[in-house]
């Protein structure tokens, strides 16, 4: 299972510190959502036994600039997520084949509905269940976040849209172990299996995109390899 994090300079911990903590908590790897983060993935893997995937979380004002950013970053980053929270951006993300994850679709004024869920299923854009506010906020903010999560869950469930789960940690102190997230998920109406699947989905994204970005890959279903000599 992987967790996707906001590292220094955006967050309050370096990628290495996240990796050290993630290893202690039983994660197989982390996805770095911060484009500016500096790290040496090989050294980290050697030291802590945790895989690190480079990613970017695009924050755009509208679909136009988001499209440009996706085009720019897609070739260089294993995981491309787009911060939602606005109807036009949510729609753009779920209809784009090149965006892996629509993060925080319900934050701000963002809404999610059956049309977006169907598009997400069709285009393979994962919808993120952000557990951050459940873990870290209180009072009315938390109630709103919980009811948004419930709504999103019902829609995503019904249309079988792909999804990921994350605590959206901005420091090593905000990371929670997979078992903890599963327990929290059960307390707020998710099944433990769904949360585990949401964490494992990050692995799937990393695996697929690494294959796609590798040199052997030419197009879907086409790759360079040995030709068949005999039939």
């Amino acid at each position: 299972m992987y967790e996707a994090v906001h590292a220094h300079p955006e967050g309050e911990a370096t990628v290495a510190r996240f990796a050290r903590t993630a290893a202690e908590q039983g994660y197989d790897g982390i996805v770095v959502r911060t484009r500016e983060a500096e790290f040496d993935a090989d050294a980290i893997r050697e030291e802590y036994g945790v895989d690190v995937a480079a990613g970017v979380e695009i924050r755009a004002d509208g679909p136009g600039s988001a499209g440009g950013a996706v085009g720019n970053f897609r070739p260089d980053f294993t995981v491309v997520t787009l911060r939602g929270g606005d109807d036009a951006l949510n729609r753009f993300a779920v209809e784009s084949d090149r965006v892996d994850v629509l993060s925080r679709p319900m934050s701000g004024r963002g809404e999610f509905n059956h049309v977006l869920a169907k598009a997400a299923a069709e285009h393979g854009t994962r919808v993120e269940f952000d557990f951050g506010p459940v873990l870290r906020s209180t009072g009315g903010d938390r109630v709103r976040a919980l009811s948004d999560l419930r709504k999103l869950r019902e829609i995503v469930d019904h249309y079988d849209a792909p999804f990921v789960v994350s605590a959206n940690a901005r420091s090593h102190l905000q990371l929670r172990a997979p078992r903890e997230l599963r327990a929290v998920g059960e307390a707020i109406g998710f099944s433990s299996e769904a949360v585990a699947a949401g964490l494992a989905e990050w692995d799937a994204i990393v695996g697929t995109n690494r294959r796609r970005l590798s040199e052997e890959f030419i197009g879907p279903g086409v790759k360079r390899g040995r030709y068949e000599e005999e039939r």
């Binding site: 202690e24 873990l135 870290r136 102190l173 929670r176 929290v184 307390a187």
Partner: peptide, 22 residues
């Protein structure tokens, strides 16, 4: 499991951010 969830939701103690891991 309920206890684990409650523990996981401790994000700060008296204003100081903490990480809890069972």
């Amino acid at each position: 499991e309920a206890a684990r969830a409650a523990i996981a939701c401790i994000s700060d103690v008296d204003g100081a951010p903490v990480r809890v891991t069972v």
